[in-house]
Design a binder for these strands. Structure first.
Lengths: 263, 263
DNA sequence: CGATTTCTTGATAGGGATCAAGGTCTGTGG
DNA sequence: CCACAGACCTTGATCCCTATCAAGAAATCG
């Protein structure tokens, strides 16, 4: 877990370098159509450090700002009355954390030392000429968040533990690769097994056993704050029983001619 | 299942009345800040009938339009290679179906005779003065879709079959109530038990048993295309172990001081 | 009305939760 | 620099929720 406690320059608004460095700007540039004015809106946004284990916002908060994650890891989560917890999404540098509605419907917590940037919703709407493309850029980030949740919904509903885990690690691999945080098929991953369990709907014990199984198959090593993917293709195969999407699917066929299957 | 085959006037762009009647406009008016010009954009949008079991769009489709559901029921879903299916969301009149990204990442199918309306994304962006508030209205609908999925994520990850079912029925109760389709705690619900299973991550058999349990407790009757909630409070209690949100939760506490629990 | 689809119920099995108990790592303070 | 405390990881044993298999009944459709 040494990765988690990198020395942190207390004066600067940058978190431990290994978790990303203002990747939000790069990400916005790469992913969306942002010109100089719009980037300025984000770059000049108020940056704030949030310490590990501190909530960025809480359920019920009325937020006038949209919050972007510049550095570090965060997650959105919900709590049930008896202590059960479900992680809605894990966030890495470059993500729009939310909240999607002015009144937050879930918690968001920093999982490492983080830097977040805030843009008032009003400033987005009133930015004049640049507004529309900024809005569409933000819609793109929201859509990305939506698609991640759709994928997780499929995992939670219809995939077994091994498939869920493989999917999850591959998703992180892709997302972190996009913001330059992967080197040699290896990336930092400061999540405890308990948090992974709360993300994938599994118990800590079963997370541990699933990771062991993947390790013993030589597919991936996860632990000590780091993930190394030894066999990407093998991991993809483990995640398999993959979407029927990649084969041609005839229209109007999805709902029909299907028998029930579970893993 | 008689509700499913109401006589359908073939010439008019209205589906079986019992599933809603252009509720999209009312919904947009109630939920969002829409003035006359914006409503006109939606009302004048091309309306199209889609027959039951026909896909509205398919995974991979490049759609220039945003699709609204005016009448009838629909769902978004994904397929896995071996036939497993997961429903991403169920849609009722007034919903924005999507797709959230220009290239659809999932299927959408009509579950009844439906009427959908399409608005080109470009027209939204280029509508001039009305554009910004239309955009924010649409963002509101997308956010609603997002929150539904977040709720379902919690259900799939951390709630047992009975809690999931109770939540699901209460969610439909609330959503249909909002568009005026609930009378006397009863509403039409044209979903097969198999589809409910694919929504809640359960097998058909277990859906049947869970519904029977809720019925035998006198909470709710579901079947024959209709749901009747006999005991709303009891159903809420069954859905319980509800979000810790409703009690005051101290900041920075969510992630800490918690032990793992599952139902 | 025969053919499907959908619903229902019983019996059996399995994936993953829970319980229990150590082991390992990290940071702290003497 | 070492020892202790607490968080985190690991593994074994057992249980239970839910899937799967099987077979009818009910409802709907052509």
């Amino acid at each position: 877990m040494m990765n988690r406690r990198e020395p942190l320059a207390p004066e600067a608004a940058t978190a431990t370098a290994c978790y990303g460095s203002d990747a939000v700007l790069r990400h916005l540039e790469d992913t969306c159509v942002l010109d100089g004015d719009e980037i300025a809106l984000v770059r000049d946004a108020e940056a704030r450090n949030v310490a590990r284990d501190v909530d960025v916002f809480a359920e019920g908060d009325e937020l006038v700002d949209l919050i972007f994650l510049s550095d570090g890891w965060a997650c959105k989560y919900r709590l049930l009355g008896d202590g059960r917890r479900q992680v809605i999404n894990i966030h890495v540098p470059g993500d729009l954390i939310g909240p999607h509605t002015p009144r937050a419907r879930c918690f968001a917590a920093a999982l490492t030392e983080t830097v977040v940037r805030r843009i008032p919703r009003t400033r987005i709407a009133n930015a004049g000429d640049v507004a529309l493309s900024l809005v569409s850029a933000i819609e793109g980030l929201m859509a990305a968040d939506y698609e991640m949740m759709a994928e997780r919904t499929v995992s939670l509903g219809r995939r077994n533990a091994k498939e869920r885990m493989a999917h999850f690690l591959l998703e992180l691999y892709a997302r972190l690769g996009r913001v330059g945080l992967v080197r040699d098929r290896s990336f930092p991953m400061p999540l405890t097994q308990e948090l992974i369990g709360d993300t994938l709907g599994l118990s800590v014990v079963h997370v541990n056993r699933t990771l062991r199984a993947l390790r013993e198959e030589g597919l991936v090593t996860a632990g000590y704050g780091r993930v190394t993917i030894h066999d990407p293709d093998g991991l993809i195969a483990a995640a398999a029983a993959e979407d029927g999407s990649h084969g041609p699917v005839v229209r109007a066929t999805g709902l029909i001619a299907r028998t029930s299957h579970h893993a």
